[in-house]
């Protein structure tokens, strides 16, 4: 077992004539907490869509756990252990909260779940603080609970790599801390986390390493202090 969990090799993604990602490479180590930042439209979500398989790439390759997964469908990547949350919460709206978690447990987790799907789903809901709403419809959740459900559902896929896309956007200060604590606990259990986030306080405090995208290219990659001090990063955010 190597130390590298995810390796993105020079992937390119075009939307028509627009180059959304230009030969981006990224390596994520097993157990690492990586922050992915960049101005709006820099390609962060596109990059994770390519990693998760929601979008096909136009070049380059993606390796996960030693396998080339470039040609695999999104559901196969989920089964291999890549889980994600969505920037705008997209719960299965006809289901209760616990039923929302049963889907990834039964499908993505496959034999990584223990057998009693219902009990496991409830246990995960308890971990994110939603146990009292387990049997309620997900349509009645508040914004912060909606984010918790997004996280819980990604966790129910029993991932080795968890990608969280702006899971804290729009939340209050205390709520951000709550979500950060949950994410830290998840990471302590050995799950690798890639976090896209605009809240600098959160991403700086949480990440061990930060990669910066700007206009589809990776312009910096390193420990948080050196990255924020990088003049190219400053230019990307603030202009000349």
């Amino acid at each position: 077992m190597s130390d590298t969990l995810l390796e993105v090799r020079e992937i390119t993604k075009r939307f028509g004539g627009f180059v959304a990602l230009n030969q981006v490479s990224l390596v994520v180590a097993r157990g690492e907490r990586l922050g992915l930042i960049g101005p709006n439209g820099s390609g962060k979500t596109t990059l994770i869509n390519c990693i998760a398989g929601a979008l096909p790439t136009d070049g380059g390759s993606i390796h996960f756990d030693g396998f080339d997964i470039s040609g695999r469908a999104a559901h196969q990547r989920a089964r291999l252990g890549i889980a994600r949350s969505f920037q705008i919460p997209r719960p299965f709206h006809s289901m209760s909260n616990v039923e929302n978690l049963v889907i990834p447990l039964e499908y993505a987790a496959g034999d990584r779940h223990g057998g009693n799907v219902d009990a496991e789903a409830r246990e995960i809901l308890a971990r994110v603080g939603l146990s009292d709403r387990a049997d309620k419809s997900c349509s009645g959740l508040t914004q912060v609970d909606m984010r918790r459900l997004e996280l819980a559902r990604a966790l129910a896929a029993r991932p080795t790599l968890l990608i969280v896309d702006e899971v804290m956007a729009g939340l209050a200060h205390a709520e951000v801390d709550e979500i950060l604590a949950i994410l830290q606990e998840i990471n302590d259990q050995g799950i690798t986390i890639v976090m896209i986030e605009h809240i600098m306080r959160a991403v700086m405090g949480f990440s061990q390493r930060i990669a910066v995208l700007d206009a589809g290219e990776k312009i910096a990659d390193g420990d948080p202090e050196s990255v924020v001090g990088d003049p190219r990063v400053e230019r990307a955010y603030l202009g000349e």
Partner: peptide, 11 residues
């Protein structure tokens, strides 16, 4: 409910 999410959840 949501085909894209279903796919990303392993369906």
């Amino acid at each position: 409910d949501d085909e894209g999410v279903a796919e990303s959840m392993g369906v």
